[in-house]
Design a protein around this nucleic acid. Sequence first.
DNA 1: GTCTATACTCTGATAGAC
DNA 2: GTCTATCAGAGTATAGAC
Lengths: 214, 214
Amino acid sequence: MTTRIQRRNRRRILDAALDVFSAQGFRGATLDQIAEAGGLSKPNLLYYFDGKEAIHRALLTDLLDTWLDPLRALDPAGDPQTEIMAYMRRKLQMSRDFPRESRLFANEILQGAPRMESFIRTELRPLVDDRAALLRAWATAGRIAPVDPYHLIFSIWALTQHYADFDAQIRMIRGDGHDPLDGADAFLEELYARLIAPAPQKAAAGPRAVTGGA
Amino acid sequence: MTTRIQRRNRRRILDAALDVFSAQGFRGATLDQIAEAGGLSKPNLLYYFDGKEAIHRALLTDLLDTWLDPLRALDPAGDPQTEIMAYMRRKLQMSRDFPRESRLFANEILQGAPRMESFIRTELRPLVDDRAALLRAWATAGRIAPVDPYHLIFSIWALTQHYADFDAQIRMIRGDGHDPLDGADAFLEELYARLIAPAPQKAAAGPRAVTGGA
DNA sequence: GTCTATACTCTGATAGAC
DNA sequence: GTCTATCAGAGTATAGAC
């Protein structure tokens, strides 16, 4: 057993692997790097996990489960604007708290999501479809502005994860002393408050078509 | 010389390399894959380019130059709202026309931008600083809403490039028959029209602080 | 459980014939 | 200019001692 030490070592390995995989991608990462970052030898690493692929799979499995939580927490019974703002805030907080996880995720999708396809099709897609239907219902009822629900969700993903995924670029542009996320909260609050507020002009014939799009 | 065939072959190689590098990242790509995609042998590939690194460098050099064009085209003499909307449209069009280039770029930044750091610091950063100052001046003059200029630029990057970089995910969610970019134009038009429109409420004491942020 | 030594495969690059 | 054959190094994984 010795479950105490085993669990500690597994955690150390996974943490080191998250460092390396998120920074180098799956193929770019090597067992040597993970072993060194975790403070153990390569064979010992392979005593705990059944190969490189298994380590990566364990990371993804841990991650994907919690990745859906913010979207799950979107409450159909709540106030539409409050709920959407809260979802955006939770996603931004995840970029702050789990930037490596965001980059691990991004690396996978960028390369065609070969190790995540079944998760996306069987778990993420139904959840997104369900929440998109909810957003559409809110829009139809006039409780939020009539925006496309899928693009609304994608925009929240894009804007929040950008700060984690493109962190290197933002740091080089803003200077090393600057926190990339400084001011992001206020900016996104403003952006989504303006976007989803219903009834923009009172009775002006705005360019807001409600043709039967997607 | 035989420059005719040489140029054709170089172009074929670069096109094949763009396919492979954008889909697999630098380390994930192999010369075998590039050679096969380009329809020639591996040694022949290395007759035209001085190694894997050189092929990648040639791709980046070609790309980075044109990557700045949309931001360069932002005209200080133009109408602020028109100019910002036009910039957003150009960036979205680039995601449509050059998704592989966008993913090549994203792969690099995600992994710390090791082969682009000097470009970002010496070319991109000064340009962004300059355009941010312009946006700030427009905001101060009340010609657009008082939003943070850097976050405004980053938001345009995030929202437009997301459709190229996360294309695989969007396709799996929306279904294979659906074009990920359908409706994106209208959505982003609406979003930025609302965000940058000046004077949101007439004289209401809104939560819009103008404290001396970044 | 952990290590040293090593087998085996993949991949970037070169030699040399044509 | 293009190919076949091959080398050298890196990287995953295993054997076996302790």
